[in-house]
């Protein structure tokens, strides 16, 4: 494992979300990528962090979170009863 300045590793961690969201300046991006090439530990951390975010984006497709038809029917019925003609 390569040796890097721990404070640089701290700064690296703070920037990971902005890096993944393309919210970093090109200069900061370049420095972060340089650090990742040099520091095995931060590179491993980044890969697990990125994996977590990628996995999170799949939650939206989970079937258990889809609205059953009857929930929509009950909603529209309640709204009709309580709102229509107000």
């Amino acid at each position: 494992m390569s040796k890097t300045d721990p404070t640089e590793c701290d700064r690296f961690c703070d920037l990971l979300s902005c890096y993944l969201d393309n919210e970093l300046s090109s200069d900061k991006c370049r420095k972060l990528e340089e650090h990742m090439r040099e520091c095995d530990s931060c590179r491993g951390f980044f890969e697990s962090f990125e994996f977590t975010v990628e996995l999170s984006r799949k939650i939206v497709r989970c079937e258990e979170y889809e609205m059953p038809d009857e929930v929509g029917e009950r909603l529209r019925e309640i709204l009709r009863t309580r709102c229509k003609g107000c």
Partner: peptide, 16 residues
């Protein structure tokens, strides 16, 4: 941004 970063760090650690 700050809250999101903390949330992601927490989820990563929980998964770990």
């Amino acid at each position: 941004k700050s809250r999101l970063h903390r949330a992601r760090m927490y989820l990563r650690e929980f998964l770990e």
